[in-house]
Design a protein around this nucleic acid. Sequence first.
DNA 1: CATCGAATACTTTTT
DNA 2: GTATTCGATG
Length: 774
Amino acid sequence: MDYLKELNKSQHEAVVETNGPALIIAGAGSGKTRVLTYRIAHLLNQGARPSAILALTFTNKAAREMKERISEIVGENTARYLWMGTFHSIFLRMLRAEHEVIGYPSNFTIYDASDSRSLIKTIIKGFQLDDKTYKPGVVSSRISMAKNNLITPQAYAQNSEVRLADKSMRMPAIAEIYKEYAKRCFLSGAMDFDDLLLKTNLLFRDRPEILEKYQQRFTHILVDEYQDTNYAQYLIIKKLAVHHKNICVVGDDAQSIYSFRGARIENILNFQKDYPSHKIFKLEQNYRSTQTIVNAANSIIAKNKRQIPKTVFSEKDRGNNIKVISALTDNEEGFLVAQEIAQTQLRDHYRNLDYAILYRTNAQSRIFEEALRKRNIPYKIYGGLSFYQRKEIKDLLAYFRLIINPWDNEALKRIINYPARGIGQTTLAKLETAAVNAEVSIWKMISGMPENNPMNLNKGIIAKVLKFRGLIQGFAKIAIENDAFDTAKTIAEETGILKELYSDKSTEGLSRHDNIQELLNGIQEFTLNAKEEGRPDKLENFLEDVALLTDQDTDKDEDKDKVTLMTVHSAKGLEFKNVFVVGLEDNLFPSAQASEKKSAEALEEERRLFYVALTRARENAWLSYASQRYKWGKLDFGSPSRFLIEMDEQYLDGDEIGGSTSASQNPFQQQQVPGNRQITGSKRQPVTPGIRRSTDFVSRKLIEARKANQPGTGFESDDPNKIMQGMTVEHQRFGEGKVLKIEGVPPNKKATVFFKNAGQKQLLLKFAKLKIKG
DNA sequence: CATCGAATACTTTTT
DNA sequence: GTATTCGATG
């Protein structure tokens, strides 16, 4: 078998020793995916049936890529029968197959995070609780925590530990909210993400014969990214593996960075205890990064107490030292990063796709976007609001959802008055209250009309509601008889959504129209593929695919040669020649309250996050931070991350970019504040408290710096008071425009401007960057 | 009931 | 800076 020759010794062992429990510790860049794919291919070559192999990943993308690579070895006709996918998609498939047992319709809806948040909000309102104490986000994460730990609403109510925690947060009613939430989801025929795992567990608990069926079916189970599994996932795997015990988990405890969504690093740490007869394989050679990067990353997590001992090493060159970018302001940070990209590109002939900028939060991307745009460096951003989260897309999808599953209350509430058809909040509230009281879905309530009218709606309103009902019923019929694309097109046209967006000539309106078109194109592609491959091509089938899809999963051609901007979390599993880790103040966590003491575990995870970020780089890494940045309109002072300060000198480049050495290029040099972080000799000093006391001095210097034609800004506003009606002005993003109206008094003075390229905009003058042209 | 403008809150990370 | 919500007005 040729493919085995491509493996080193430990990789080879991990691939061929397929009997019994196996723990594969795969350090960053150690060829994990290769081992996993070859192991599966090897199983198949040894005669295992593909449908008996269950392989679980964390992202659709990982599953797809692995499937492709396995196809190349064993052929597509074998690979297609593998049970390979994300935890959520595999168990969704299982739950749909077993829907009768759990009392759900087969076409149950998946509520995404915003659906479940809005339902929680409704419940909080219905209970007449104060939504300032009961923040939907917090309540939602409590419920999610409960589900991930398999605590049902009944168990929650009796669990003194969680109840006590709720009380200490002054939210004793969470148990009630959870119960109501679960009930309403059930009445809507809906599950949220966490339900997919919870209900699978309950199914296995309550129906041993079904568990038995799957235990027999899967002779081999493989789990990728095992360090990121939560309790619910852990238990599913454990139960399924009972019979054959051929469970192979792959992961790296050093890359466990998902505790916030319930991931338990204990799962991988305790695997050896769970399965005493296990074999352990350690993939320790890093084929990705230079020695400098590997060693620097190792040095960071070396301080962590809880980890599986291993020595990750690289046999590549020592490579360049890691460069430090020390910027005074956020804008300067963006400028310096863009400048570094441009300079290294010229010098070393890198392409745009060789670069990634990694940050902690999506909101940090803007500064770098602007800086790259100014230099005409093409870039792409992952994360932020995904395609499927845009309003117009969610609206159209809500129609689809309601047609497939009319019980879906969240979908119904979204569209019953979109486009406007005279069914307002009051009517909707009446309908919902009546539905809740009768313990049915809103649609059931509407179905009983006009004979049943417990909420005293007047004739005109009833007529409007019935018209809506007829519309949906008509669509439902079309959906049964036609393929997904025809149905979707009919809906988009007949509801008037397409027309409404088409007539909206503003920039937003145009892009919304484009998005709808793109969705329709996607559905068309789905339909064509389905027809070709003989799969069902109905709207229902499209919707199943789309529920668990994120747009991280789609790679577009036009995105080929671009600089990548993404969060450290979403960069996991990827690699780039050159990586900028930016916003490195206060433990890579800009919004952390400096005073709040972090638990030891949280600090260890911060280290691992840093480790993940650094090990994405093949050749060069930059670490950058800004001393001052604007955070919700106010100046915020940051000290460099403790990891930067702790890191051994030998890995760092002595010439700090934007620091003391590049004075000639850096107009900020003169404004550098005494006491700010500088390299003096070989020992760097952390920021002294003194800097915080001299706030006035610093902000005065900062304002001066901004006035002195700061490189990162490049566009200075003229005095807002001088902007008058009729003037021609230039905006930094929208281009040239004419001032139609000025209104309000400072600081809320506003201008209505008509831009040639961007249409009419209202701008708040204290923020908008406008220059007077004539 | 819809629309507009003003006030307010909001920022980890994601299947 | 932006998204969302609330209240006044038509």
